[in-house]
């Protein structure tokens, strides 16, 4: 299935491609992100992952949410309060 991933993550995953990714059916947000990271030959340390959160189709999502074809993800830098 295809999902769309966009990023706003500061220095983390800087330069990663935004757009359509082909991922296995029924994969989770975490697996989709990992697939994107792998495709871009990048790495994401656990320590860095803690800085991130996700919107699934514009709603706050969780890493273990199951995705469906056409879903849109935003991977974002966590809001700490400015």
């Amino acid at each position: 299935m295809n999902i769309n991933i966009r990023f706003r993550t500061g220095e983390i995953l800087k330069g990663i491609r935004a757009g359509e990714y082909s991922v296995p059916d029924g994969c989770t947000v975490r697996e989709a992100l990992d697939a994107a990271i792998e495709e871009n030959s990048m790495e994401l340390a656990d320590h860095d992952r803690e800085y991130l959160f996700v919107l699934v189709n514009n709603r706050l999502g969780e890493w273990e949410n199951t995705l469906k074809d056409g879903d849109k993800l935003w991977i974002l830098f966590k809001i700490l309060g400015g």
């Binding site: 500061g10 220095e11 800085y51 830098f77 809001i79």
Partner: peptide
């Protein structure tokens, strides 16, 4: 990362998010 953010774009980084 948070320190890097504050040194570069400050709190304004959060706005669009």
């Amino acid at each position: 990362h948070i320190m890097h953010q504050f040194r570069t774009t400050g709190t304004s980084e959060e706005y669009g998010i």
